[in-house]
């Protein structure tokens, strides 16, 4: 039941992410989550499939190294280290995260698994990671932390994707990973522009366009 352990760890990282003040640390935790996801298919005993192996390697590479690298570089460029004054306090964030996990469990309860599927934790974990990502996106003010939120949200989806990993065509899988990478890359570029233009990456300031 190695994969259950990995999933439990993933869910724990969610809480860590929500509670952390430091940008550096949240990037680290997100990267760690990515690595956990990379190992997940291996823990499910899918060694035999070559494309699964390739995928695991690519995941670890992209989520564990490449993207954190991009984010750290962006962090250095924009000189942001701490998330100050989030819209929602950390305590409340934790409670909401817990609530999200609860909702995920209820939802997962309503979605019957394939008969004989032993991966009961996958669905709630995926959904709760998704909600955590959303929580970060909604409650944080720094553009960079929002990107981390997006990354976490993607991780949640990826986690669910593991249920299908056996059958997923490689073309689609690589496409998904590539898109994620390019997406984060572009976001990094935009963050850099934002700092240059706004002297800050506080998204509170970016509310000039409104009705």
């Amino acid at each position: 039941m190695l994969h259950d352990l990995l999933i439990a760890l993933t869910m724990l990282t969610n809480f860590t992410l929500v509670a952390t003040h430091r940008v550096q640390k949240s990037i680290q935790v997100a990267a760690f989550q990515g690595v956990l996801l990379g190992f997940l298919p291996l823990s499910m005993g899918l060694w035999r499939h070559t494309h699964v192996l390739l995928l695991a390697a690519a995941t670890i590479l992209v989520k564990g190294w490449l993207i954190p690298f991009l984010l750290r570089r962006a962090m250095r460029q924009v000189q942001i280290h701490r998330e100050v004054n989030p819209y929602i306090s950390y305590t409340l964030s934790l409670m909401l995260c817990a609530l999200g996990t609860g909702i995920s469990l209820v939802l997962a309860h309503n979605l019957p698994l394939k008969p004989g599927d032993a991966h009961g934790l996958f669905v709630p974990a995926a959904l709760s990671t998704l909600f955590t990502g959303f929580l970060l996106l909604v409650s944080r003010r720094k553009a960079l932390t929002q990107v981390v939120g997006y990354l976490v949200l993607e991780n949640g989806i990826y986690l669910f994707g593991m249920l299908l990993v056996e059958q997923m065509p490689l073309l689609v899988e690589t496409g998904i990973l590539l898109d994620l990478f390019v997406g984060i890359f572009v976001m990094g570029i935009v963050i850099n522009h934002i700092r240059a233009a706004f002297d800050s990456t506080d998204t509170l300031r970016m509310a000039e366009l409104k009705d």
């Binding site: 819209y87 909600f131 959303f134 996106l137 909604v138 409650s139 944080r140 003010r141 929002q146 998204t203 509170l204 970016m206 509310a207 000039e208 366009l209 409104k210 009705d211």
Partner: peptide
Amino acid sequence: RFLQAGHLPIYLLYVL
């Protein structure tokens, strides 16, 4: 009009 006040987190909250 306050529904569209320009804050990205609010917009994402709508999605959520």
